[in-house]
Design a protein around this nucleic acid. Sequence first.
DNA 1: ATTAAAGAGAACAAAATGTTCGTTACAATA
DNA 2: TATTGTAACGAACATTTTGTTCTCTTTAAT
Lengths: 197, 197
Amino acid sequence: MKLFKNGVIIMDRRQQKTRAAIFQAFTALLGEESYSRITVQEIIDRANVGRTTFYAHFETKDELLKALCENLFCHIIASAEDCSHTHGLYCDGSAPESIFCHLLQHLKENDSNVLGLLSCESNEIFLRFFKDSLCELIRSQFDMQKHPFGRKVPADFLVNHISGSFVEMVLWWIRGRMKQTPEELDCYFRSVIEPVL
Amino acid sequence: MKLFKNGVIIMDRRQQKTRAAIFQAFTALLGEESYSRITVQEIIDRANVGRTTFYAHFETKDELLKALCENLFCHIIASAEDCSHTHGLYCDGSAPESIFCHLLQHLKENDSNVLGLLSCESNEIFLRFFKDSLCELIRSQFDMQKHPFGRKVPADFLVNHISGSFVEMVLWWIRGRMKQTPEELDCYFRSVIEPVL
DNA sequence: ATTAAAGAGAACAAAATGTTCGTTACAATA
DNA sequence: TATTGTAACGAACATTTTGTTCTCTTTAAT
């Protein structure tokens, strides 16, 4: 099914196409009904691929979901990592280009319809995935810093607090139809996070 | 199916039993496999009720889930509401009996196995439900208070931030095998929340 | 003791799952 | 360009799950 070359996975152009078609169909369906109600039949009908083809790519619906998550967040997190290398987490209070602002802007652009998935009926799954990625990102940046709360509160707790708050904020933003700009949101976030950094 | 008396629902003792049996079986199954993999057949086998009986109580598996959530959190939130009436949200910084500490202690006691559900594979569903209940509770307490952030950050944002942070903390606590006492956790939470109140 | 309702259990159609074929179409090589 | 491997097709299939419809029995409330 998959060919390996120099350690990286090379995909047949056909595979890429069907994979993309399945992802797209699945994403669209998630906007229409809850995850548990979506059937493989619906997916392959919309994606216009054969039944066998689907099962050749994904063992189950759950696997498809997982693969979609990985696809989605690896991009957004990678670009945030890039950003954090040059600017750091929140070292200087006045940095206009924080990771968080960067992430929010990235979300606003909404490539590959992350927002659609984060606001669909079954968004909890994506939220958890998003948060897990975020935790890793923040942790890698965090232990570099010395924080005054060092003894009072464990660093692990703080990493979770920051990631969790951010994800919950994004959810709040989306549910409120995204009336605020990324910059406004970033300002809110700094207000509640910087006092504890 | 259901009899009404003075506006409240009165249940036949038989109904109560089967309902309880179904809830219990469902809860146990959620600890063993993911929600999407659980079948109605498994539930009725474990609960030892007939197929017809199940569908007389719940239209779908999703409805059962929803009913379970409502059952779970109405108790825990009601007792927290009680507590908040006497002590307020976080008015005085040294109150040993905050809503949050109360909630954590309540969770620690773990009646009706809330912790099991919050740590099972499909816990996202319960988390959202928990957070929604919490948001309402905090909102009802919050707008009574005057907070210094009044202009800088919307109250709505703060309510979401507090509820969200709390839920994320509980999740972190459970995932870390609950090594901290409710009092320790409450202390952590105050450290990150009181600066923004 | 009477009555109304709930559960058991079997049987059923319809839908969804997951697998196995042989055949066709295409993509990456030489 | 010809060759070769393999992805996709599609039809057919057994199996599982769903949701409904019966009849009959048991139980709770009064």
